[in-house]
């Protein structure tokens, strides 16, 4: 952990980029393995095959975040 407050960047037409000490949990409160990564990308298009992480599929489906 980095001791850095979490920040979330909403990437246009893409994922949410999460930096810093954010704990990722399942609805049951089980920790989600970040695979050692300090920065992770969370899918917000719904199409990823490795949810909650982004796998780039948003680029194939033409997802628009409209933000």
């Amino acid at each position: 952990m980095t001791g850095r407050p979490p920040t979330i960047v909403a990437c246009p037409d893409g994922p949410l980029l999460v930096r810093g000490d954010a704990e990722l949990e399942t609805p049951e409160g089980e920790p989600i393995d970040r695979h050692g990564r300090n920065t992770v990308a969370l899918c917000r298009c719904g199409a990823s095959a490795i949810k909650p992480f982004c796998d780039g599929t948003h680029k194939m489906t033409g997802f628009r975040s409209e933000d």
Binding site: L17, R37, A41, I50, D55, G56
Partner: peptide
Amino acid sequence: EADAVHEQ
């Protein structure tokens, strides 16, 4: 997984 982060 990694490059979906890196590309951003």
